[in-house]
Design a protein around this nucleic acid. Structure first.
Lengths: 238, 238
DNA sequence: CGGATGATTGAAATGACTCAAATAAAGTGG
DNA sequence: CCACTTTATTTGAGTCATTTCAATCATCCG
């Protein structure tokens, strides 16, 4: 991990001010958070936390992408979540982390010392309510992913993944061509979807030849119609 | 759903008093809960909630087993969780439920009117903390299941499932023969593990011929050594 | 006993995997 | 800026685990 320019930022100017764990905090609570926060940066590929590490900090992703994963003893790896800007990492009331956290791209974290943060949660109903809400949201997406892992075909998995990225990026009209940057490589996609990287590659070229996506380069796709992608994802129309 | 004898019970006598959502409530809070609770019973096979139903109640499982599942438009089903005694069902702040909830066995629920319960949560830090803790625990187990669904072999899936049932039932010494009742049938196991019922059946007979389990009848196994089962589950020793 | 439902077993098909090789893109250092 | 190495991705051919479809067996229950 190399040293980069230290970041300082006021919470008011923070890009995730209204979507992160602090979203529903008022000015007073924000001031308290401001006092205990520090920014940290990691470069793509850096391990942020190893499974079993002591959890001295909890953090919000400010910019960049991290992955949450676990590896079985024989090397099989399953990614359990992508941490995108405004996502929260770290579990309250737990000394040790259960998973490996890795920086998929260069990333900036807004870190809070765990003990102090927990203290704050006890006194701030806003914060604890927001935390519960975020945990429940995470639970919902974990369950969505269980359906994907357990029941979807390789093609549906890829389509779901891409459509999910699309949704998380921005609100886009369903029928307009969109450029979609991929934050992770084929192997990581495979680990996220419970596939091999070869299958990921094959299914992506298949989606391409079916006209659902266009591959500009390794890390950039063009999606002519998000709607079509969704239709290929196996989800019922909601 | 047939009418059974109405149940009444004092919270003090409740078998899940110290493990359910009310676990860390004090006497005062308990008294408030007592006022808004009602018991409901369902028979094995009853649908407790359909996806999309209005969520008027939240509830704890007192006895019996329920399943939480979702079905894709073409009929593929994935079970997302087993609700065992002391588990909580219902999501705060949500009008509608996302999943189907089905009684796998005869079941007794301790129900709270959602609105009143949410009111109570706002005023009881004990309750809201416990709720957060339970949500995080559920998140952990959903993630464990993601590893199972994404990366484990059929055999490992069955072994993991059986070992999980064993763990949830009671604290048993790892090397003593245990009787293990199965709360769900082969098809439901298949839906839980992302398999077909034929594969479940085949792998169970294989585990039997390997001496890891003994099949007493459809719904009852004998596990000579939980430790051996764990070894077959693919999890690293923790 | 008979009929229904649940579980097992068999044979064949298949989707995804493994292993291996070929391309493509991204660094690296002169 | 170009050869060279390294890493990421694609493509191919063959294999294998699980599924699918079909039939049999077992168990439960009126």
């Amino acid at each position: 991990m190399s040293m980069l320019t230290k970041i300082r930022m006021k919470c008011h100017e923070c890009p995730i001010r209204h979507s992160a764990v602090c979203a529903s905090c008022d000015e007073d609570e924000l001031a308290l958070l401001e006092k205990i926060k520090t920014y940290r940066q990691y470069e793509a590929g850096d391990i942020i936390l190893w499974r079993g590490d002591t959890l001295d900090y909890v953090a919000s992703v400010v910019s960049g992408v991290a992955t949450l994963g676990k590896t079985l003893s024989d090397g099989r790896t399953q990614m359990l979540g992508l941490l995108l800007p405004s996502d929260f990492m770290g579990r309250l009331g737990r000394q040790h982390i259960e998973f490996d956290v890795t920086a998929a791209t260069d990333i900036v974290l807004c870190c809070f010392e765990r003990k102090k943060f927990e203290q704050l949660v006890l006194t701030s109903p806003q914060l604890s309510r927001r935390l519960l809400q975020m945990a429940l949201d995470e639970l919902d997406s974990a369950r969505e992913w269980m359906i994907l892992l357990g029941r979807k075909t390789a093609r549906e998995k890829i389509a779901t993944f891409l459509h999910m990225l699309l949704k998380r990026r921005q609100i886009t009209p369903a029928d307009v061509e969109v450029k979609l940057p991929l934050p992770i490589n084929r192997e990581q996609i495979a680990d996220y979807l419970g596939l091999t990287l070869e299958t990921v590659s094959r299914q992506m070229t298949r989606l391409k030849s079916d006209g659902l996506i266009d591959i500009i380069d390794r890390k950039t796709l063009l999606v002519p119609s998000p709607e079509l992608l969704k239709n290929a994802s196996g989800d019922e129309d909601e």
